[in-house]
Amino acid sequence: MESRSGLRGGLRRVEGSLRPRLRGFRQWWTRSLAAWLPARMRDLFGLSPQRLLLQPAEGGLQLALWRGEQVRTLAHVPLPPEVEQVDPLGRLLAPSMARVPRWLLLPGSAVLRRRLTLPAAAGDRLREVLGFEIDRQTPFTAADVSYDARPLGRRGDQLEAELVVVPRATLSAALAALGPLAPTLAGVDVAEADGSPLGVNLASGAARRRDDPSRGRNLILLLVALLALAAGMWQMLANREAAADFFAAQVEAEVERARSASLERRQLVDLIEGGAFLRAARAGRPTMVEVMDELARRLPDDTYLEKLSVEGDRILLIGLSREASALVARLQGSTLWSEPTLAGALQPDPRTRMDRFTLTATLNVADARPAARPATGGPDAAGGH
């Protein structure tokens, strides 16, 4: 049980120290973003801090607009009667001005201010710390005043702050003088010498807890920021998908080019191999000139050829000769052909008194098959022909 209570106490202390820091960071972030926008844009989106200041004056109220660290006097109006139930300023102000938060501005003589030096660690809970200093720094007790704390700056490990207190009786009298305007107030501040607000809120606890009038606008801005973030992330995802599709198309194009190059290389290798085969075939085959020269040397002078043809490896001779029966013996033993044979019977030719013969032989052709390529079909194999 003690460990649980200690853990809860530690969580409360962490939450109490983080909450003001997060609030300060949000305010700094909002001011930094608003500084990039023109004044009209800041006014349009409600990013410029502004207040409608109600300051008691002789016979009525002085209305002033505080915006962008500047105070502009608007009008002097009489105090509304206490019996009036509606907002008396709603009829006098424009709709946009009627929505501006209203603050009561007390004169500087109505409050008591004390400047204090505190440890820097007190900055996280400055108002609570200064609440314990009321009895020592002012002639009042904490129950008799409404107070607020204003940080002035840091100096090393010291924090300069100001304690501002107003007696509850004085504050109640000022609120009572406003009549029906008192419930419409967003806070109570103090006027400095130049008429600008000091920057504190001396309202009571109930008034301090009143809903922030700019909360709806802030929620809208937060929703717009979330939508913009989602749209940015979606656009980033779409860009990544488009880049992936582009790279996939590039890879497909490269693969197609590689496939085409491989096909062209295969065709080139086939052409080289075919050319090598033809060259080998020609090298192992006797030429027609060699065949005719060999026939001229072996055939007798009284032999005439009417037809000489070579089809594949078959030689066909048709002609007339006085020694036709001896032609087979004369043609044998040649290195250019083999198996010379008479095809059919000899036919005497009465006009020339010679015998017509038909003779065939087999042409000697060397093996024209090229050496076998390696199975891989690599560039070395292609380059060897």
Rank of each mutant, 00 (worst) to 15 (best):
T287L: 07
R23I: 03
P56C: 09
A191L: 01
L79N: 01
A98N: 11
A169V: 12
S146F: 08
L79C: 05
I272V: 15
R150W: 09
P56K: 05
R23N: 15
A324N: 06
A142T: 10
R314T: 14
R31N: 10
V224W: 11
S32H: 11
A110W: 09
D270V: 10
E192R: 14
V190C: 02
A173Y: 02
L271Y: 08
S338K: 11
L74K: 01
P167M: 09
L229I: 04
A375S: 13
A258Q: 13
D189Y: 00
P78S: 15
A161I: 05
L105W: 06
D349C: 06
L226D: 04
E82T: 11
E84V: 15
L336Y: 07
D211R: 14
L33R: 13
G6F: 12
P38C: 04
A381T: 04
L336M: 05
N239R: 13
E2N: 12
D367G: 00
A361G: 05
F246V: 06
Q137P: 01
T184M: 13
R168T: 05
A149Q: 01
L305G: 02
D135M: 06
R373G: 08
R42V: 02
Y147M: 12
L342N: 08
G319H: 05
N364R: 15
R4P: 04
L112F: 08
G6S: 14
L171R: 12
T352C: 02
Q250Y: 08
T170A: 15
A276H: 15
Q158M: 08
A174L: 00
S32R: 15
Q332E: 15
L336S: 04
A39R: 15
S196C: 07
R67P: 00
A98M: 09
L63T: 06
V111I: 07
K307W: 08
L89Q: 07
L308Y: 07
V289A: 14
L295C: 02
R215E: 12
R285F: 03
